[in-house]
Design a protein around this nucleic acid. Structure first.
Lengths: 375, 375
DNA sequence: CTGAAAGCGCTAACAG
DNA sequence: CTGTTAGCGCTTTCAG
């Protein structure tokens, strides 16, 4: 929108037709309109010569639709969560491109400033919003809902409106701990994530259920409370080594994410404890750090790409369904159809948390796990 | 822009004044306008009651300014470049917030699709653009320049318009290699980045100049061509171990980035070569993987936050200067003043590549370097 | 089936 | 100083 940018009317003037004719040729709206082939060619030629590009702001004002969805993510974190966001984003980008939607990211520097910043962007320039890892207060989600449709991923608070997507945390943790048990481990520690996070609690639940089903004792002294950071994994590993008597030492540690596992691995390695010969370490997420540890991590992978795709599709379905006045259905699906497809195909299940879709996870076996030493 | 969203006119109708009065009270434009305090209060009350929020699309169309800058970055990469982008983004966000500008990120999935995707977004919704690591063809930068102002970071092609920001690659590499030499290393290898990248070449130049100034021989067999990936570092380390006779083995490796250093570290460690006792390894960038290697990496840190801030300020200055018709100066600086300040303060220097500002780097000493074995 | 006219929500530039 | 009018660039609607 600067210097000499050609407008629709410029072209209309050049060619000597109405701006409507130009609009219908270039932006293919208005179904019933017929322009003679000769004029059509002249319009296209003029548009090309003048390097015409439609002005999305004007179009948006008129159509009440920007064909743009936003992703809100907190960009202050330099640990592994970022890589997760990138993978989600790749899926979301793919889906958005396929459906002719723009996807833009609205980075939020700090959790606290979210509320202000987020409402700033809900000013007509976006048709819908995808929240990643947000904690939306009831008030904010109400305000948001008045302005646009949204879906969330890894929401840390119960959803008021719209759907929430998450990994099948409990299932993933369960599968990993069963795997460790199948290797012969009897004493499996858990470096749990922060307990204000629903995902952490679910992973802990999966861990407990797996121990029980494997007929193993669940020693509370082997469950440690940590944060999702490398440094926290490091400290907790030191704590474990200091507080545990050799006899009670676990032969495997299941960490609530890869960052924790990375930190733990570093400390164990520094103390001369060999992985996986003396102790097995497993993570969760399968992000970049899983590949940079001394022994590449056995971990639980989430279908991040598919989740990104699903987020966009669910959002657009919501817009289609709930805002018919905006016309232009993008997906053309029935209400709930997108979610139903995911469930039917086995990609996701309806979680215990209301309105949450849990995506199936997968255990990735690498070098950081093996049978316990006595085997 | 959905369901019942109050507009300016709604408020005007409620209160019984002109929409102009409302506009001037709520959005503080139109300097000369006076509204009685009583009306002002009633307007504010009504706006609050109706939860009024200005529609940025309508405002943008009218003012020809969105107060929004975009960042274009390629989001397909899952290696360390991401973390760099995040740090840059944090700086950019800070500056944008301070100057009352929205900052949004336009992720580009693949390098090849950039041209299309990028022009898509230059449709009036953005006042300016910041490119990270882009290779803009001459044609694309021309088209872009017709539509909006832009600046670039780590541009891989010479700049047609606008300024480019980069780290002082040569200076950083020089400082690191001088540091290694000062520890007593005589045979220092370099795992160079891809030679189509200007930054890689500059790092290589710094390496060579440092060896020369330190009076060390520059053995071409110790310079390896790699890519900016962990796996490439891994392979190159294997190559080094296979091709180098023990007598000719370097005692230090300076890697063109941290990912390469991480891969190299893994292989060396796996072969039982102790770091830094037997060989020192140094990286460049100081990103997350520098903290997850067996020995935390000695590396060259770039002032990413400051670069993000500078990118936004330089861009807004360009808009102020070159698009006076849009009014509303954001910075109110003279042309070139922002760059001059950076140079005067010593934060950056004018690079050899035309129109490039090189930001001062810093050697961060950690655990992966030490004196050579014979010492 | 075509073309002129009205309007999306807001603001800048006027005339009263 | 107020209040009205005329757009911003595009699209939808409604006469011709």
């Amino acid at each position: 929108m600067r210097r000499a940018v050609a407008t629709l009317q410029d072209i209309a003037r050049e060619v000597g037709v109405s701006s409507m004719a130009v609009s219908s040729v270039l932006n293919g709206s208005q179904k019933g309109i017929r322009v003679s082939d000769a004029t059509r060619v002249r319009i296209l030629e003029a548009a090309n010569r003048l390097q015409y590009r439609p002005n999305a702001v004007a179009r948006g004002l008129s159509r009440r639709r920007m064909n743009t969805v936003g992703v809100v993510a907190e960009f202050y974190n330099t640990e592994d969560i970022d890589v997760i966001i990138h993978q989600l984003l790749n899926g979301a980008l793919e889906a958005a491109a396929r459906l002719n939607q723009c996807l833009i990211v609205c980075p939020v520097p700090h959790p606290s400033s979210s509320s202000l910043k987020v409402l700033d962007i809900c000013d007509g320039r976006l048709d819908g919003l995808i929240f990643i890892g947000a904690s939306l207060s009831e008030q904010l989600s109400e305000q948001l809902f008045r302005r646009l449709e949204y879906v969330s991923l890894y929401s840390t608070t119960p959803q008021q409106h719209g759907v929430n997507l998450d990994a099948d945390n409990e299932g993933g943790a369960y599968a990993m701990v069963r795997y460790l048990a199948s290797l012969g481990h009897k004493r499996i520690a858990h470096f749990a994530g922060p307990q204000h996070s629903a995902g952490s609690i679910e992973r802990l639940t999966g861990y407990r259920r797996a121990l029980e089903d494997a007929g193993l004792e669940c020693d509370p002294n082997l469950v440690f409370q940590t944060y999702f950071y490398i440094e926290s994994g490091r400290q907790t590993a030191k704590e474990l080594l200091e507080t545990c008597s050799p006899a009670k030492m676990p032969t495997a540690i299941f960490c609530a994410n890869d960052a924790i596992a990375s930190g733990a691995t570093q400390v164990l390695h520094d103390r001369g404890i060999r992985i996986p010969e003396q102790i097995s370490v497993a993570g969760f997420d399968d992000c970049l750090v899983a590949l940079t540890t001394v022994r590449r991590l056995t971990t639980v992978r989430q279908p991040l790409r598919a989740m990104g795709v699903a987020a966009v599709e669910l959002l657009l379905e919501q817009i289609d369904v709930n805002e018919p006045e905006r016309g232009r259905l993008v997906l053309g699906r029935e209400p709930g159809q997108t979610a139903q497809c995911l469930i039917d195909s086995g990609a996701a299940t309806l979680g215990s948390r209301d309105k949450t879709l849990n995506f199936r996870t997968e255990v990735i076996v690498r070098e950081s796990t093996g049978p316990p030493p006595s085997h």
